[in-house]
Amino acid sequence: MMANLFSIFDPSSSIFTLSTNWMSTLLGLMFVPYMYWASPSRWSLFWSKIIISLHKEFKALLMPSHTGVSVMFIGLFSLIVFNNSLGLLPYVFTSTSHMVMTLSLSLPLWLTLMIFGWINHTQHMFAHLVPQGTPFILMPFMVLIETISNIIRPGTLAVRLAANMIAGHLLLTLLGSVGPSLSMSILTILIFSQILLLILESAVAIIQSYVFTVLSTLYTSEIN
């Protein structure tokens, strides 16, 4: 019996005491079609077009001196969307629905940006704490507010991604658990609604990957 409702997201299968569901990030490479690695192929050309579009958009958001950093954010987007999509498969643990995974992506990135910004652009980082046109009497409060909003950025990125991924999976699980007790007519409606929710979750998997990456790009553009 489950200890709580969220126990359904705990990895249950293991090989040599190593939880296989937690290894979904690495095991997912087995699901990549063989034809993707053949060059050129339809899969590789399709993904290349996506990468080119992302590069153009990130290039517009980044500072001119940081355009090469877009390669890192494209890789970050690819990793997140890959894990999110992999979690839609049955009996596969969604690694991005856990704070350990999302914080591992957002915290090092934010910490690196802060160290780089405060060492190389100290004056600009101090000036960024006080928005232009702020009255003198409100400056201490604005510094406090801007400092707190800056510190919680990695947490908000991690919580946003994990919460959005776990919410849809939890709804699918709750609806699916009542299936055996329903009549055939209501079960047909339930299956149709599950299909619609699965389509929605597929869109959420891509959208949340895009939001996570774009926000990280915007944070990068603020340090220069």
Rank of each mutant, 00 (worst) to 15 (best):
M1V: 15
F6S: 08
F6A: 07
S7D: 15
F9S: 10
D10A: 15
P11T: 01
S12P: 02
S13E: 11
S14Y: 02
F16K: 11
S19C: 01
N21A: 12
M23I: 03
M23K: 04
T25P: 04
L27T: 04
V32I: 12
V32M: 02
A38R: 12
S39W: 10
R42G: 05
S44G: 07
L45H: 08
W47G: 03
I51R: 07
L54Q: 11
K56C: 08
K56L: 14
F58K: 02
F58T: 04
L61W: 06
L62Y: 13
P64W: 09
P64S: 07
G68C: 05
G68D: 14
V71W: 05
M72I: 11
I74S: 10
F77T: 02
S78Q: 05
L79Q: 05
L79H: 06
I80C: 00
I80S: 01
V81Y: 03
F82C: 02
N83P: 01
N84S: 08
S85Y: 00
L86I: 06
L86N: 07
L88Q: 00
Y91M: 10
T94G: 02
S95T: 15
S97T: 05
M99R: 07
M101Q: 04
S104V: 02
L105T: 03
L109F: 15
L109C: 13
W110K: 12
W110R: 11
L111T: 10
L111A: 15
L113A: 06
I115A: 14
F116H: 10
F116P: 03
G117V: 07
I119N: 11
N120T: 14
T122R: 15
Q123V: 06
H124C: 05
A127I: 09
F136P: 01
M139G: 03
F141V: 14
F141R: 04
M142K: 09
M142Y: 11
V143W: 04
L144A: 15
I148S: 07
S149C: 12
I151E: 06
I151M: 15
I152T: 04
L157A: 03
A158V: 03
V159E: 14
L161C: 02
A163D: 14
A163I: 09
M165H: 06
I166R: 14
G168M: 00
L170V: 08
L170Q: 10
L171R: 05
L172R: 08
L172C: 08
T173K: 10
G176R: 09
G176K: 02
S177T: 13
P180L: 06
S181A: 13
S181V: 12
S183G: 15
M184S: 10
S185M: 07
L187H: 07
I191E: 13
I191L: 13
I199F: 00
I199R: 00
Q208L: 06
V211I: 12
T213L: 03
T213Q: 03
V214H: 06
V214E: 09
L215T: 12
T217C: 14
T220R: 13
T220G: 04
E222S: 13
I223F: 02
I223C: 01
N224L: 14
